[in-house]
Design a binder for these strands. Structure first.
Lengths: 208, 208
DNA sequence: GGCATATACGGAGGATGCCTCCGCTTTTCA
DNA sequence: TGAAAAGCGGAGGCATCCTCCGTATATGCC
């Protein structure tokens, strides 16, 4: 992996300042949208990034394009987190932590979540890409936990993801975060095959 | 129920034109947001409603206030639909139809859904009010179906609602509507107690 | 290193939409 | 029927969006 010589058929190498500025803008956008929600001023984003408004618009012609870049970045982070947890924790614990991180992700970025929901709403390719990416990420954790024999085997990654999304939709009621974190724990415990309950040990109910 | 003489302690009766205009604005907003999403121009709403922009702002000081009015109205409709279905269809069929209507509701109002999601996001009172209202609406249908002995009794209205919301979150992938409608059917069938499977007929698993 | 040029930068300024304010109109109530 | 409360419309000030173009700088070739 020494570069992109071939894939960018004959193009000149992108200018270093352009790459740097693009990155700065995305990072600034993440911060500004987190704080101010999806309606936040783009000029504020440019200001925080330390670039001119024209630069922002060249990289991201529309507000949605900027949302999208932030979205992909966040999805990427969650996917990478899954990989990392695979190495740091035992199977079931890794799964639990990943789900909890998801909840916190929604929690700490109130405004952002709205922006991201909006972005996904208006861009089905982005939505299915993300859903897919996250499904694969959680699929890895899930397979591992199933292989270890600690949890039941009739759960699909999509189910788990959908359950998580559904649970987070509760956001904003007074103690929602605590409540959802508890739900996650309950859910993960529910996945577990209890060695101390002999009846129907891991009996995969007819597998359908 | 002949009026509000008492409840509006001594206030003058609200002017008829004001009531009419308010209604017009909400209706216009529903149409405009449905077509153009949550960012649609408020001046367009006023134009469509046939009122001045000042009138719109007097009734709804902020964009969110307008979202909220539309939101409450839609929730009201869904709740009323539940009541109506109780009288028109047999228990399980009524439940199925209500869930399907929900899916169609999301489908026909692409832009609106985003607007409503946004509104709920920034107003937890509104969110919990709606969740509550819908929970009660579906609860009525559910109790009736359980009482008829046709479906299992260990499902809670919140679960059903949450499942529905989660499934609709799939919106926008190519054939999502068909897919979700199918899921709803599967789900409702899953609730059913099959008379042809004798084992554990309606046995409410320990009921906690 | 030095030069040519593709590429990127910044921000002025026109366009659009938000929202306030106030003079005029309509409705209510006595 | 008349007074006054309530409501109406839209002009205009202000903020933000986004385009356009003159200036600046990195890249690639010698």
């Amino acid at each position: 992996m020494d570069g992109m010589r071939q894939s960018d058929k004959g193009r000149r190498k992108p200018r270093a300042d352009a790459v740097r500025n693009r990155e700065r803008v995305v990072e600034a956008a993440r911060a500004v949208f987190s704080a101010g929600g999806p309606e936040a001023s783009l000029e504020a984003v440019a200001r925080l990034a330390g670039v001119g408004i024209g630069t922002l618009y060249r990289h991201f012609p529309t507000r949605e394009a900027l949302f999208e870049a932030v979205y992909r970045r966040e999805v990427q982070h969650l996917a990478e987190l899954a990989e990392q947890l695979k190495q740091e924790a035992e199977p079931v614990e890794a799964l639990r932590r990943w789900m909890r991180s998801n909840v916190k992700f929604v929690a700490t970025k109130k405004g952002m979540s709205a922006a991201l929901a909006l972005a996904a709403y208006n861009n089905s390719e982005l939505f299915s890409y993300s859903f897919d990416r996250l499904t694969r990420a959680v699929g890895g954790l899930l397979d591992r936990a199933i292989a270890s024999g600690e949890i039941r085997s009739d759960i699909k990654p999509e189910d788990l993801l959908r359950a998580l999304i559904g649970m987070c939709y509760m956001h904003d009621q007074p103690g929602w975060q605590t409540s959802v974190l508890r739900l996650v724990d309950v859910f993960v415990d529910g996945l577990r095959i209890r060695p101390d309950t002999p009846r129907a040990k891991a009996k995969p109910r007819k597998s359908r």
